[in-house]
Design a protein around this nucleic acid. Structure first.
Lengths: 156, 156
DNA sequence: TGATTACCGAGTGATTTAGTAGGTAATTAC
DNA sequence: GTAATTACCTACTAAATCACTCGGTAATCA
């Protein structure tokens, strides 16, 4: 799992699309204007998103982009993986010969953590984000985003 | 929150330190050997980790590095933030004049998600990772890393 | 036919990544 | 003392990535 500014741009653009695409397609020019991302960079990002069927483009006047599927079916992990392709970090991949030493133990731990982070982001959908924010707006008091955040968060 | 290969190197190195530093300091040369990371790059990473008191160096023969505090007090977020400094993504920061439009709504959503990811990683310590792995080794059947991973993980 | 929009490829300065090289400072062992 | 070892520090660099510009082509609508 990799979370760079590129992934953020993609998530931000997809959020914009989820919010503004309710009735009719949204043009990249609009997203560019709304989010302050250059048009050409958006084109690159959407080429990747299109490849994973996360968005669907319609050409011509009145055209633009739709979400490729329902916002509830698109996870944050989906978006990030589409633009920020997965790089295998541990060279051994678990199967090579850094046999049993401290190196492979560390790699195993990293792999497990990596999987956990991925699952975490795979469990948050675009729909979740939008819905939670609406809930907040209607006067909810608890932090509606706290799925896991609990006590021991003195870490900073 | 930013999660790059640099952060991974740092987490991996810190894991190595947590595992091998039980009795005596660990040299960067050992970590370099164990994890396949160049010595000089480790020096750069550890300079940042030292700055945040996450590690403590001892010079001279028999020297090396200790964890700066207990493994249970060092979160993954701590490590990543030390080496991969926090970049504010949304230019408006919530306070500027992208007043109420779709742009700021999206930014708010992104900020909330970002906070959620941070809290998630802030709740996982080096100690957790090591302990969970030991639990796994003693023949535990459940995935000991599944803190949040539950049902709806058809996303990929 | 012309405007609009997605789609496509080449190129680019700035930044980041991961590393080399060549030191100095502190500590230990002899 | 002297030599070895280790942290600690600065400067430099090839390669990759980031975010962008430019200049197109293809489809669709009025």
């Amino acid at each position: 799992m990799r979370l760079s500014t590129k992934g953020r741009y993609a998530v931000t653009a997809m959020l914009d699309l989820a919010i503004n695409g309710k009735n009719g397609p949204v043009t990249l020019a609009e997203i560019s204007e709304n989010q302050g991302i250059s048009l050409s960079y958006l084109e690159q990002l959407f080429a990747a998103l299109r490849g994973k069927d996360l968005v669907r483009g319609v050409r011509g006047p009145g055209g633009g982009y739709y979400l490729g599927k329902s916002a509830d079916e698109i996870s944050i992990a989906n978006i990030i993986c589409a633009v920020d392709e997965w790089v295998e970090f541990t060279r051994c991949g678990g199967r090579q010969n850094c046999s049993g030493g401290a190196r492979c133990l560390t790699h195993t731990l990293w792999d497990d953590l990596s999987t956990e982070i991925f699952n975490f982001l795979a469990n948050i959908t675009l729909g979740d984000l939008v819905k939670r924010n609406l809930g907040k707006k209607t006067g909810q008091e608890d932090n509606p985003l706290s799925v896991v955040a609990d006590s021991r968060s003195e870490a900073a």
